[in-house]
Nucleic acid binder design. Structure first.
Length: 417
DNA sequence: TAGGCCATCTGGTCCT
DNA sequence: AGGACCAGATGGCCTA
């Protein structure tokens, strides 16, 4: 049973909530009062109730890049060497923050305490420094070294200006980072301007995408769709998994009717399979929110696209020529399906549209080409603001004229918003 | 209301 | 001294 201790005073409800997430937190206090987890009742519970903020919430990007980097390094290594020792990296590197990540807690403690002390207003800082000058009789180590210069009003003013400039630079830096992430979103196998992947999911998907492409290079053959999708979705949240699956299936279907360079038609067998680990029942399908044109969730949120399902991602019968026209419209937009009123929430609808990833007998090679290698088909992205020389994402692949059903128009609108 | 994601501010560290 | 980068803290917004 882990122990947590008290290391400060802050009573905001949110921080208390966060503090109670043991997987995110590790109290850096050396000498605080240890408390049993879970809080339980009595004095211990009261102590938790009044417990302060977490000292640390794992920094997202650092965590993510620590996940991505080993794979990228490994990938680049075996691409160059044409060999890979194993493929267990994905299993190794994902997961919640580990205790090892927090081993530097003590080191941070001192810094955090310094920050806490310095977080006060400038006047306090000035007072402290002035007081420090007055206590020259002591012989502690921290009182040696260069003598602090007195904070004159002019120096304080300059310090404020410096701080403001630093803040502006930091904002710019973070905006640049976000722009880069936006560009990354455009090249991973799932992109929508209205349903942005979160930063962490974008990085995870990018990592998986790189890994999948590397596997293709290593094996010299195209993988089956299932393993390809499994690779892409490894470590992703359920909503992101469904979104990716939907995107893949959508774009796969686009190619069902397109001519390939060799003139061969895309082969569609009668067989199909489901990838149940990724199945996800749209919880709002039968809810009152399931209304045509509902736009409540037409905004960016990471879990809003959780049940995004696109026409090609539904059941195999959906693709059959016998498929009824009344079924041609369900499009889950951020969890809301644009279905007719009578369909919404009906048992039949729920039964027919169980939102597992159903793959038609899609040729693995074609799918791979679509999702991983066939950038050339889409041409250059027009109007893209990013400067990186990135391949255009497959979602820009144009549909052939006869494939531009209203559903696809809607999807195109969705994807190009 | 809990929890996730995000932007912003901030001070520390390293480097030029 | 100042810039880049990092990471902790904080609060807003949103969904379930």
């Amino acid at each position: 049973m882990p122990h947590y201790c008290i290391w400060g005073r802050d009573s905001t409800a949110k921080k208390q909530r966060a503090w109670l997430q043991p997987h995110l937190l590790k109290c850096p206090c050396r000498s605080g009062v240890d408390l049993d987890w879970p809080p339980g009742d009595g004095e211990n519970k009261r102590a938790f109730a009044s417990h302060p903020a977490p000292r640390r919430r794992a920094t997202m990007l650092t965590r993510l890049f620590s996940e991505v980097l080993p794979d990228v390094q490994k990938l680049s290594g075996w691409v160059e060497n044409s060999e890979v020792e194993d493929s267990k990296t994905n299993e190794e590197d994902l997961g919640p923050l580990q205790d090892d990540d927090l081993d530097d807690g003590d080191a941070r403690e001192g810094r955090s305490r310094d920050q806490s002390e310095m977080a006060g207003d400038d006047d306090d800082d000035v007072d402290d420094e002035d007081c420090g000058d007055e206590n020259e009789g002591g012989d502690t180590a921290e009182k040696r070294g260069p003598k602090k210069r007195k904070m004159t009003p002019a120096r304080i003013e300059r310090s404020k200006v410096r701080r403001q400039k630093a803040n502006a630079r930091e904002r710019t830096r973070m905006h640049d980072l976000n722009s880069a992430l936006d560009n990354l979103r455009k090249v991973v196998p799932c992109y929508s301007k209205t349903q942005k992947l979160s930063k962490i999911e974008t990085l995870r998907l990018a990592k998986n995408y790189i890994w999948a492409l590397g596997e293709i290079l290593r094996n010299g053959k195209r993988p089956d769709v299932v393993s390809y999708v499994q690779t892409l979705c490894k470590g992703l949240s359920q909503p992101t998994t469904n979104l990716v699956a939907g995107c893949l299936q959508l774009n796969s279907r686009k190619f069902l009717t397109e001519q390939w360079p060799d003139g061969a038609r895309f082969h569609v067998s009668n067989s199909s399979f489901s990838v149940h680990p990724y199945s996800y029942q749209c919880p709002r399908l039968s809810s009152p929110q399931c209304q045509p044109g509902s736009s409540r969730h037409m905004r960016t949120h990471n879990y809003g696209y959780g049940d995004a399902v696109y026409p090609g991602a539904i059941s195999p019968e959906y693709n059959s020529p016998d498929y009824g026209g009344h079924h041609s419209s369900p499009v889950c937009v951020n969890g809301n399906f644009s279905v007719s009123q009578q369909e919404c929430g009906s048992p039949d609808t729920d039964r027919n549209y169980h939102y597992a990833m159903h793959y038609t007998g899609l040729s693995a090679s074609r799918a791979t080409a679509v999702h991983g290698l066939a950038f050339g088909t889409s041409g250059a992205r027009s109007g893209s603001a990013h400067s990186e020389n990135v391949p255009p994402p497959f979602h820009d692949v144009h549909l052939s004229h006869h494939d531009r059903t209203p559903v696809y128009e809607e999807l195109n609108a969705l994807f190009h918003n």
